[in-house]
Design a protein around this nucleic acid. Structure first.
Lengths: 246, 246
DNA sequence: TGTACATCAGTGAACGCGCGTTCACTGATGTAC
DNA sequence: TGTACATCAGTGAACGCGCGTTCACTGATGTAC
């Protein structure tokens, strides 16, 4: 249950408990700094200061600034994916399309609540930092994979129009066919194409709102507009018009 | 023709010419630094260094770092909008839907060519900097307004389905109705809703690609996938399926 | 055309700041006998 | 249960760096007479 860095399963001593505690506090302060000042401004020294530690002490827990960023990146991806999973599970009896809407709503809610952490995940890359793929792609693709799983349900249920409204260029079709194999999914490339459009709508809609592209008070209810955008994209998958599921 | 800072129209002297020249070089170096290191790392000192100037000399031309960022922001918005306008004008005889595709293509091409400047416009906000609306909203909304103008053409031509595939919540409809008035456009709120979806697809699709969310080599032809996404969104506007215009 | 003065571009030094990272160190906690 | 040694958390000083901004200054360009 506890992780003590080795393979022994002895109960953790005082030292280990304190170590876990401090590590958790470093992450917590890092999260707060991310939220307040953004990723580019994240500094080990200021995190240390907030913890009442001398800056060099942090190196006992974290290899350096980049490592801290990686931890926070994984942390944010995980928290977001957990929120999305919770939203879809809470509506387990709803049809797949309704659960897609719940997932999108949960993603937006998290992004609005945590704009700087959302920016870390889906905004401009942090200058001078490149995420280690082997540690981030897993957590970083959980949300899309959930979306794909929901759409796969729709395919299985026969809800999904095999043909999209726009033709797919052969080279694009080949790319997508390769991607479905890599993802281990049994869906048509044209369906995957529309799922990428759905994903683009979700990330685009949230980014436009969270990054402040809509004027200060152009929309009083941006969440409703977002839901409409997503619902429209989902309708494109089914090929049918009609009221979206609650 | 020349701007000499006053209302006289005397021909510019040596001093003014040199001043314009240095100002232009500051912007050019700023652009290059933006492209290479990103906005958060933009510094007056390094720009001065590259120009062979002492850092304080730059203050003769620019009030400070934030002012330089604002100039570069307007510069980038303008260059992007010019590229989009050029692309649509070059295809002036094409139907409106084809010109929407051309516009989207041009936007993506510019973003791929200038990822850091695209990030400045549509990525995470720069920490500690807030753009002065009175100087940036004009250039910053040119592309969307072009898009809206093209769609307005479609409305006038009777190409556009008044009813979208998904119902629009009353509060969202009210928001959008207010926005059409502000924009001075005579289009139905449901149409504007779908245009915002189109815009979300464009920004979302480009951001996902440019910000590196697609794996290193998941797609060999991301441009084709993008065009399919946009074409699909345009089809949602017309409410008709069929091959998209060339 | 020539001279006296005003304007302005660019210099160089300085202020005060924060950053990441290394390193030799003290003192507390854990472990083996 | 007690002692000797190993491990590790945290300290404090230091290195070397870059940043934005101010300020008194020199020397060149422009302007008015």
């Amino acid at each position: 249950m506890w992780h003590d860095g080795g393979m022994s399963s002895r109960p953790p001593g005082v030292r280990q408990l304190r170590r876990d505690d401090v590590t958790a506090r470093i992450l917590a302060v890092g999260r707060a700094h991310l939220a307040e000042h953004g990723a580019a401004a994240l500094s080990l020294r200021s995190v240390a200061r907030d913890l009442g530690l001398v800056s060099s002490a942090v190196y006992r827990y974290v290899a350096g600034r980049d490592e801290l960023l990686t931890l926070l990146l994984v942390d944010a991806y995980t928290e977001l994916a957990d929120a999305v999973d919770a939203a879809t599970s809470a509506a387990a009896d709803d049809p797949w399309a309704a659960r897609v809407l719940h997932a999108a709503r949960a993603l937006r809610a998290w992004a609005v609540r945590e704009p700087a952490r959302y920016a870390l995940l889906y905004g401009s890359p942090v200058p001078g930092y490149s995420a280690p793929g082997e540690r981030t792609t897993g957590p970083g693709t959980r949300v899309v994979r959930r979306l794909l799983a929901l759409v796969a349900e729709g395919v299985a249920a026969g809800d999904i129009d095999a043909q999209g409204p726009a033709p797919l260029a052969p080279a694009a079709r080949a790319d997508l066919a390769r991607a479905t194999v890599e993802l281990g999914l049994d869906i048509d490339p044209t369906v995957l194409a529309r799922v990428t459009m759905l994903w683009a709508v979700i990330i685009g809609g949230v980014s436009l709102e969270v990054f402040g592209q809509y004027g200060r008070d152009t929309f009083s209810e941006p969440g409703l507009l977002f839901e409409h955008q997503v619902a429209t994209a989902v309708q494109v998958l089914t090929g049918r018009a009609g009221p979206p599921p609650a």
